[in-house]
Design a protein around this nucleic acid. Sequence first.
DNA 1: TCCTGACATTTTGTATACACCTAGTCAACC
DNA 2: GGTTGACTAGGTGTATACAAAATGTCAGGA
Lengths: 262, 262
Amino acid sequence: MTPPIGGAGAEPDGLAAATTTTAATTATRPRPPARPRTMPKAVERAYSQIRSAIVDGTFPPGMHLEEEGLADSSGVSRTPVREALRRLAAEGFVEFVPHQGAFVPTWTEADHHEIFDLRAVLESFGARLAARRVSAADLDELRALAAEMETAARSGRPDRLDDVAALNNRFHGAVLAASGNRRLRQLAQATVAVPLVLRTFQRYSAERLQRSLRHHREIVDALAARDESWAEAIMRTHILSARWELLPAREAPEPDPIDSEG
Amino acid sequence: MTPPIGGAGAEPDGLAAATTTTAATTATRPRPPARPRTMPKAVERAYSQIRSAIVDGTFPPGMHLEEEGLADSSGVSRTPVREALRRLAAEGFVEFVPHQGAFVPTWTEADHHEIFDLRAVLESFGARLAARRVSAADLDELRALAAEMETAARSGRPDRLDDVAALNNRFHGAVLAASGNRRLRQLAQATVAVPLVLRTFQRYSAERLQRSLRHHREIVDALAARDESWAEAIMRTHILSARWELLPAREAPEPDPIDSEG
DNA sequence: TCCTGACATTTTGTATACACCTAGTCAACC
DNA sequence: GGTTGACTAGGTGTATACAAAATGTCAGGA
């Protein structure tokens, strides 16, 4: 149930055909929540353009997002832009002020801690659930993602760090998918972490990045062992250790920038 | 920051009056996220009407919500109806199917368990945080709400049970507010439980209701003692015990309907 | 010189009109 | 008679036009 409102729903829904005369007797027969076909393009274009502009910093924190301008630059009208902004607001990418419109949120340190607290709670719970239900295919996928991340990180090239971040998101998403709780996945992925964590690895030192990658391996091991407590603990560890790498205040210090990692 | 997108933002944001000669340097200065004034009325009307119709069963599960009809019955046009539906979808009250529109979701038993698992995780964590930061005023409010619920329940009249449900929501919301984590509150309140739990108490037996009310008292005690683990445990208990009262399958049995209590 | 008031601009909020897609129905063909 | 095809209706998706509201500016007065 509850398909992700706009997210790229790559999940086979499976249970669409509960059409078996479900109690309702009236003529206004509720039709079965049919299969999601293809998403239209206007809202999707506006959505992804705005989203990536926020993520990559083109739209800096505090910026006022005017609907007309976004509509022009996206090549669509204001209506789909509004819908896209609403979705982005629901996911925490923008903030709305009643008669002023949408703004790129400014993250405070308190926000940062809120988000990581929630990530720790939700994803460690997801890891616990996943340890119960994980399949061999899930484990293969997780191992493959971990390996890809290690490869990308080993290259040492900063431009690969975005790949690492993307793979990291996929890894965490895969764990949440393996948990079997779709709402949990939706919450953890959409509402919580994305805006902050997306470009995260740019700031990791080489050794911290290595530790993060080792965490991933250990998460897979814990899941493979079907050890719920271990899985929960290592996932919690993994996320809470990342918190301190990414504090907004740490922008200046700039630790060892990844280079020359064998 | 991140004010609740559509919720009645009753928070004094404080930093509204930077109106004095625009201390900014550039013209495209990001303006401060100003105070939330008054929410418009069209979307709000549509939103609350649709929402309550879903909650009270006027719109049964599986029903197709046609925008034009909703617009007519709400006295507004389709545009605000669409926005209201988007918000409701983000909160789990409706589901969207691409070129078919919005439907009232049908809750399966699996959905039910997903939701209660998440509630248990989020709200017990909220109780833990709240035990750290709860103020005397918070405790007073919680005690007052608990007392009101007991009064309403003692009356034994089934029509008061909706009041109990509303007070229950306020109680849980107050705990989450006391946690100090706004995102946690937003997640726990908006995305997770509301549609299912709202009309919940109609199904409680008298003794179960009493137990639930005692839980509330114990939650307050745990918070007053500033005992994080106690608060977390009793909140978890409170929610998980409620899970089994509300299973969809239990519709037929219909236990002792509250009467003559007190 | 500073404050107060109204005005004008800009942007959001809302309404409506149009286009495309989906689904259901009916007819033609195999 | 069953199946396939196109047609028709209904509804969502999108675009645009209009109204309301807020902000910033400017003039007038104390």
